[in-house]
Simulated assay, not measured.
Amino acid sequence: MSFRIGFSVPGENLPSVPEASIVWGGDGAYLWAVEDGRAQRVPVTIVGRTEGNVLVRADIQEGDWIVEEGVHKVRQGAPVQMPDQTRNIARSQEAADRAAGGARP
């Protein structure tokens, strides 16, 4: 005899960002968010990694703009040209799962 059990456990909804957007400094990891056309340093805590993306705890929301390329050239408060150097890539893990073709086990 065999059977299958399924259950759903509510979890934390974390932003997923590309690994390339994470910068390491003397005080830990951070990324550059774009607010009002200017770069803002946002500290992050890496929670997990999934296929080129990183799950983070950070003060960013789904739909926020972050810098993905040229992150080492960016400085606090510097103007950021959009959209050529940024992409709207901060998204929930659920959206990342959908983009990857389904939920992970």
Score class of each variant (00 low, 15 high):
59 D>V: 14
45 T>C: 07
86 T>N: 04
93 Q>M: 03
32 W>S: 15
80 V>S: 06
5 I>E: 12
93 Q>F: 01
57 R>W: 13
81 Q>Y: 05
84 D>K: 06
21 S>M: 11
83 P>F: 00
101 G>W: 00
92 S>P: 00
95 A>F: 00
68 E>A: 10
88 N>Q: 11
18 P>H: 02
19 E>W: 12
28 G>M: 02
13 N>R: 14
41 R>N: 07
13 N>S: 14
84 D>Q: 10
52 G>P: 00
22 I>T: 01
10 P>S: 13
79 P>I: 03
48 G>L: 14
69 E>T: 09
44 V>I: 03
1 M>F: 13
52 G>I: 01
46 I>L: 13
1 M>L: 10
37 G>A: 14
16 S>C: 13
49 R>I: 06
84 D>M: 04
52 G>A: 02
72 H>F: 13
47 V>M: 11
66 I>Y: 02
28 G>F: 00
105 P>M: 05
21 S>H: 03
101 G>M: 00
59 D>S: 11
1 M>T: 15
47 V>R: 08
92 S>T: 01
66 I>C: 01
73 K>N: 13
49 R>D: 15
29 A>R: 12
75 R>I: 09
10 P>R: 10
15 P>S: 10
104 R>P: 00
89 I>N: 08
62 E>L: 04
82 M>I: 06
86 T>S: 05
50 T>M: 15
82 M>C: 11
35 E>S: 15
8 S>Q: 12
77 G>T: 06
14 L>P: 02
80 V>P: 01
105 P>Q: 15
39 A>I: 06
20 A>F: 01
88 N>E: 07
14 L>N: 13
5 I>T: 07
45 T>W: 05
67 V>K: 11
76 Q>G: 09
57 R>K: 12
45 T>R: 12
51 E>R: 12
82 M>D: 04
54 V>E: 15
100 A>R: 01
83 P>S: 06
19 E>F: 03
37 G>L: 07
86 T>I: 04
36 D>T: 12
19 E>V: 12
16 S>L: 15
50 T>V: 06
61 Q>S: 15
101 G>I: 00
19 E>C: 12
94 E>N: 08
